[in-house]
Simulated scan of single mutants.
Amino acid sequence: MPLKSVSSVDIPSELGRVAIIGAGAVGCYYGGRLAQHGHDVHFLMRSDYEVVSEKGLHITSPLGDVQLPVKAHQTTTDIGPCDLVIIAMKVTSNAALLDLLPPLLHANTALLTLQNGLGNEEFLAEHFGGERVLGGLCFVCINRTAPGEINHIAQGRINLGEHTRAPLPRTRQIAAEFQRSQIDCQVMESLAAARWQKLVWNIPFNGLSIAAGGMDTEAILANPAQETRVRELMAEIIQTAASLGHTLPENLIETMVKNTRTMAAYKPSSLIDYLEGREVELEAIWGQPIRQAAVAGLSMPLVQALHDELKARLS
């Protein structure tokens, strides 16, 4: 179903009215790119509201630095019904969506989650209807360095797909508008397979960065024992995905390790959460894959061991 705007005559954007829920690094970066290229984007802001209302968003990036005036709001009621809602908040806060999302919905509102881990599309489908739900996997090196300040370091692709079904016209429409807005966006035939592919990177690098006491990606790959563990974890995830019917690209391990070397001393998002005292997305990234595998009679001993290490460190 194509996106439809409740006031399309007033909005030139093919996306219609867009809301960003979760205005951290990911939400501000991708929302900022859309706003930069003429889309009608509304940001739900909490701690950054006053700074962003006054000064806008500042994005530093290899694609060019930008200073953007943006539409910031303190409540979703102030934003009102939208055509596309992009959810970029931490999975650990998903319960808040039960109150945040209803004021944003009309009959055709699409919900796009850019969150980490497994289970997010299922959560949205259960509470708001599966026909609304899309998922996106973000492959980007990015940090929020201060209120309203986003540092884009490298990459930026989004792999986009529909929840439990093949791509629709709206899927390709959203991807086309993202591409027009300096966002590399590729449509996936299987969102589930794309989710498992993202886990091949997220599980080892986010996990080992915390388990090893605060190591960035460069330090992990400079340590032979840690690199070996990265590769072994990746192999187990790929094997599990294949057993669940999700065949991932050949040479994925080599490709991911090679690409990670180009990130230099990058701190994964879970490490930043840990260092800053925020709740880590333990169950979505590490626990849920183990549980999905167990339902199919499969075990993930290496991921389980890492999950147990993280749980002990975070408790």
Rank of each mutant, 00 (worst) to 15 (best):
residue 60 T to G: 10
residue 60 T to I: 10
residue 60 T to C: 11
residue 60 T to L: 11
residue 60 T to N: 08
residue 61 S to M: 12
residue 61 S to I: 02
residue 62 P to V: 09
residue 62 P to I: 10
residue 62 P to E: 08
residue 62 P to W: 02
residue 63 L to P: 10
residue 63 L to D: 15
residue 63 L to A: 13
residue 64 G to Y: 10
residue 64 G to S: 15
residue 64 G to W: 08
residue 64 G to A: 14
residue 65 D to H: 15
residue 66 V to M: 13
residue 66 V to W: 01
residue 66 V to G: 09
residue 67 Q to P: 07
residue 68 L to T: 05
residue 69 P to A: 03
residue 69 P to K: 04
residue 69 P to L: 05
residue 70 V to Y: 02
residue 70 V to G: 03
residue 70 V to A: 06
residue 72 A to C: 07
residue 72 A to D: 00
residue 73 H to T: 08
residue 74 Q to C: 01
residue 74 Q to Y: 01
residue 75 T to R: 01
residue 75 T to L: 04
residue 76 T to K: 03
residue 76 T to I: 14
residue 76 T to N: 12
residue 76 T to G: 02
residue 76 T to H: 11
residue 76 T to M: 09
residue 77 T to I: 09
residue 77 T to H: 03
residue 78 D to I: 01
residue 79 I to E: 08
residue 80 G to W: 06
residue 80 G to D: 09
residue 81 P to D: 00
residue 81 P to Q: 01
residue 82 C to R: 05
residue 82 C to Q: 03
residue 82 C to N: 02
residue 83 D to V: 05
residue 84 L to D: 11
residue 84 L to S: 14
residue 85 V to C: 02
residue 85 V to T: 13
residue 85 V to A: 02
residue 85 V to L: 07
residue 85 V to N: 08
residue 87 I to G: 06
residue 87 I to V: 15
residue 87 I to E: 14
residue 88 A to T: 15
residue 88 A to Q: 14
residue 88 A to V: 09
residue 90 K to H: 11
residue 90 K to S: 09
residue 90 K to Y: 05
residue 91 V to L: 06
residue 91 V to F: 12
